[in-house]
Structures are given as structure tokens and as C-alpha cells.
Design a protein around this nucleic acid. Structure first.
Length: 443
RNA sequence: GCCCCCAUCGUCUAGAGGCCUAGGACACGGGCUUUUCAAGUCCGCAGCACGGGUUCGAAUCCCGUUGGGGGCACCA
């Protein structure tokens, strides 16, 4: 049947960044080994929601570009299978019923009272003595199997050969192996990868979501998307949190990661998730993104801020910003001078670049030149500014900055000819006039 | 509390006894470039937690300490 791995999240809503990495490593392993990647939903807790949660998972995986070969398989559809295995354990004397006054009757598994060892794919030879551990509930009083039981039954039934999961399951492993032995099944190969920690060095927690949001740390896929992270950046970044390809190249496509991936190269040390490098990586991927795609991805950020806009204008604005973006959500601010009907002048910029007499005179001259131009294109603009710089024995900055402030309200914008061109001559002239007025009135 | 895992720059990491006066990346500081912001490029800052061993030789192996993390559910 060949090598088979699985990703088995519980349906708890959004896809967590840690889950993304678990899914990614399983995916990379599967593709590297030409194995089968199965998606299984661990929905044995009836209290947890189903449909929306499933969507969060499948949408998240799709967004990240992680495709699976089989499933989703739902544990809640396989109750008969667990019941049958439970009966076997009961019949062989390895499981017994236990009454709890509050919760009811549950089936409990007698674990092996000894030391259990296994060869962990990332930790190497591992062992734990479980003889002092309590017996394991395998069927809850509501008739549903517990995680440890369903997991073992399914992994065996689905012929899973390698189980790559988070370190939080390390302590479960010997108990699960005990279950395999009792059912006379061969256990799969286990590999436990280190956890992803938050900037405080703690396990990522739902309770700290607000804090994460405040520092711009996206801990669920939906948040990554909302903030304007590209999936390839998130995937690339997360891949390197606990795994290294063994060379110095960090920017890698999914295919390159597949080629380089081996579970032996997964780290044993927990990694902190700080946003800096992700932000840098995202900027790199934005720069590499094809303009058509980037435009499509960017449009919502612009239109939600300024309403519907002409496609060509959006495309050009995005083209101009592509080099200087780190997150797509920055577009609302950085393209404001293009799409907002009114310019807001930054007082500091006005004071520095518009108020000095020399600046106003130069600006007035630029205005005259632009008004006289037949077509306001790059060559024309550069020629005009060059001529003024020449005549006044000054620097380009002293001409371009007042102009920039006049038409955008601030000191930061794309190259000046781009800035003027996207606005069009009428808007440019009107804004220069307005700026001249403001600067004059301050005197 | 008990059990387990882990320990290289602020962060992500390379390093599987001599190639290490510890390499790369992000961040940070500075130079260059320049029409602003970015980008690019060059330089710099910064680390083997501590203490014992083993060895001719240890970031690498062993033990201990300390520190951090995880687990101890009829949650997964």
C-alpha cells in the first residue's frame, strides 16, 4: 500500500499556525516520499462545532496550497469501527467497564504496566515507563471513543505508516503503542516535532489572541489572509520554524521544500514565533508576485477603503506600491493619495517642504511648466524638473519634495513621475494650487 | 507535585570531536546608491546557559545544576 501519512485536526474553528505547520510537514513528507496524504477530522467531542469548523480547516489548507489525497474522513462516521475494536479489547480482558457517579459508564483500557520504547523520527530512540499511569478511558459514557483510542484505530485502519505530530502528543505515544499491542497491530513510525511558542515563549493560546493582534502576530490562517500575508510567505516562514533544509537559502518554493524535506531535519527545540521575519519574507514574496495576481489580491484592500475603482487605476497603483509593501493591508494608507477625494496635508511635511519661500517659488514654476505640457508623461516630467533644477542651481530633491507634498500631502510616495501620472494633470494642478494657498496662508 | 522533552547571536537557524578566532537569515547600527519611502549593496553589533568529566582536542559525547517548554481529562 505504500507510505501513508495524515493530518488529523479537531474541528475547532480556524486553522491555527501550528496546525498549518503540522499539515505542511506531513504534506512535504508525503510529496517527498511520493506517499498518500490523508485528511481526517477528529470530531469525537460532540460539544465541538462541525460544519463551520470544517470549512475553517479546508479553506485554510486550500489557501496554503496544501492538497490532500484522501478524505476528509470523519471519525463521527466511523463509530461502528471503534465499537468493534472496543468489544475486542473487552473480550480479551484488556478493557473493563467503570462507573462514574457523575458521568456514567465508560470503557477503560488496561495499559501495559511497563516501559515502552519506540524510535522517534525526530527525537531518536525514545522510551517512557507508563507503569504508574492510570488506565485509559477509550469509550466515553456518550458512546464516543476518546482521542487516544480513535486515533489508534483509525491510523491502523487507514494504513497510516508515519505519524508526524506535535510534541504535546509525546506522552500519549507509549499509551497508544500499548493499545496497538493489545489489538495485535504493528504501530506506525512516530515523529514528534517541537511546539511553536509565542513571543513570550509560551504555547500559543486562544486566550492571548487580543495580545497577538496588538503586536500584529497572525496566529490563525484567517488572520494571515486578512492582514495581507501571501500564502507562500506564511508557508515558507512556518516551514523554517522547526525545520531547516540544511543550506543557506531561505526563500523556497513549495517544490523546493518538497525536494529538501526529511523528517530527520526537523528540530527538537521549540521555536518562537516572532513576526519580523515573516513580515520581511512577505515583502519579498509581494515583490516576486505577478502583477495580475497581486492586483487581484490587493483590490479588496483598496475598494473596502475607497469604494469601487477603475481596474486599470488599481492595477497601476498596485504596480507603484509593489516595491514598497510588506503587507497588502498597507495599501489602504499608501494609496490614499490616489483614491481619496481629498488630500490630507501632514503639517510637518508642509512646514518643511512647502512653507520656505524658495520651495514655493519652485513649486509655482513646476505648476506653470506642467500646465504648459501637451502630455504629462515620464519623459516630460523629468525634463521639466531637470530644467528647473538646472536653472536654479539646486538639487532634484528640493524640487521633487515640495511637489510630492503638494500632490500627496506627505513626504512618501512612489517616484514623482509615477505619482503625478496616476493622478492626472487636472488633479495635480488643482492640488498644487491648493498647496500653494495653504503654504501662503501660513505666512 | 510527579513524568517527559529541550538548551548556539534579541529571534529563526547551520553545526552530527579537529574544517569553528562558530556560518547564514531577520531585526538593529552605519556606508554606498538615490527624487522621498522602499528595494539593492557593503560593513558592523551580537551567541555555544553554568559546573564537572571523557579526549591529544568538545558548541558537538557523558553527568549534574540552572533555565525554558510540554504532559498528567469520559479535550484533542
Amino acid at each position: 500500500m505504500g507510505t501513508r501519512v495524515r493530518f488529523a485536526p479537531s474541528p475547532t474553528g480556524d486553522l491555527h499556525i501550528g496546525s498549518v505547520r503540522t499539515a505542511l510537514y506531513n504534506f512535504l513528507f508525503a510529496r517527498h516520499e511520493k506517499a498518500t496524504f490523508v485528511l481526517r477530522i477528529e470530531d469525537t467531542d460532540q460539544k465541538r462545532n462541525k460544519e463551520e469548523a470544517l470549512r475553517g480547516i479546508t479553506d485554510g489548507l486550500a489557501w496554503a496550497g496544501l492538497t490532500w489525497d484522501e478524505g476528509p474522513v470523519f471519525q463521527s462516521d466511523r463509530l461502528d469501527l471503534y465499537a468493534e475494536c472496543a468489544r475486542r479489547l473487552e473480550a480479551s480482558g484488556r478493557a473493563y467497564w467503570r462507573d462514574d457517579p457523575g458521568k456514567g459508564r465508560a470503557l477503560v483500557f488496561r495499559i501495559d504496566r511497563r516501559k515502552i520504547g519506540w524510535d522517534d523520527l525526530v527525537h531518536g530512540p525514545s522510551a517512557r515507563d507508563i507503569s504508574a499511569d492510570p488506565d485509559l478511558v477509550i469509550v466515553k459514557s456518550d458512546g464516543f471513543p476518546t482521542y487516544n483510542f480513535a486515533c489508534v484505530v483509525d491510523d491502523h485502519d487507514m494504513n497510516i505508516t508515519h505519524v508526524l505530530r506535535g510534541d504535546e502528543h509525546f506522552a500519549n505515544t507509549p499509551k497508544q503503542i500499548s493499545l496497538y499491542r493489545a489489538l495485535e497491530w504493528a504501530p506506525p513510525v512516530f515523529g514528534h516535532m517541537p511546539l511553536i511558542l509565542d513571543p513570550d515563549g509560551e504555547k500559543l493560546s486562544k486566550r492571548k489572541m487580543e495580545k497577538y493582534a496588538n503586536i500584529g502576530l497572525p496566529v490563525v490562517v484567517e488572520e494571515c489572509r486578512r492582514l495581507g500575508y501571501l500564502p507562500e510567505a506564511v508557508v515558507n516562514f512556518v516551514a523554517l520554524l522547526g525545520w531547516s533544509p540544511g543550506h543557506d537559502i531561505e526563500l523556497m518554493t513549495l517544490d523546493e521544500m518538497i525536494r529538501a524535506f526529511t523528517p530527520e531535519r526537523i528540530n527538537t527545540t521549540p521555536a518562537r514565533f516572532l513576526v519580523d521575519k515573516l513580515l520581511w519574507m512577505n515583502g519579498m514574496y509581494i515583490r516576486r508576485c505577478a502583477l495580475d495576481r497581486l492586483t487581484e489580491l490587493s483590490r479588496p484592500y483598496i475598494e473596502s477603503a475607497y469604494g469601487p475603482q477603475p481596474p486599470e487605476k488599481i492595477r497601476e497603483a498596485v504596480r507603484q506600491q509593489q516595491e514598497r509593501l510588506k503587507r497588502l493591508d498597507e495599501l489602504a494608507l499608501s494609496t490614499r493619495f490616489v483614491f481619496a477625494s481629498r488630500v490630507e496635508y501632514d503639517p510637518k511635511a508642509v512646514e518643511k517642504w512647502l512653507e520656505p519661500d524658495g520651495a514655493r517659488a519652485l513649486l509655482a514654476e513646476v505648476r506653470k511648466g506642467l500646465a504648459a505640457m501637451h502630455t504629462m508623461d515620464k519623459e516630460g516630467i523629468e525634463a521639466l524638473l531637470g530644467r528647473i533644477v538646472q536653472e536654479h542651481q539646486t538639487k532634484l530633491g528640493h524640487v521633487a519634495q515640495p511637489l510630492r507634498v503638494a500632490v500627496t500631502g506627505g513626504t512618501v510616495s512612489p517616484p514623482i513621475h509615477d505619482t503625478l501620472e496616476i493622478l492626472g494633470r487636472d488633479t495635480v494642478l488643482a492640488r498644487i494650487d491648493h498647496a500653494l494657498e495653504i503654504a501662503g496662508s501660513k505666512k
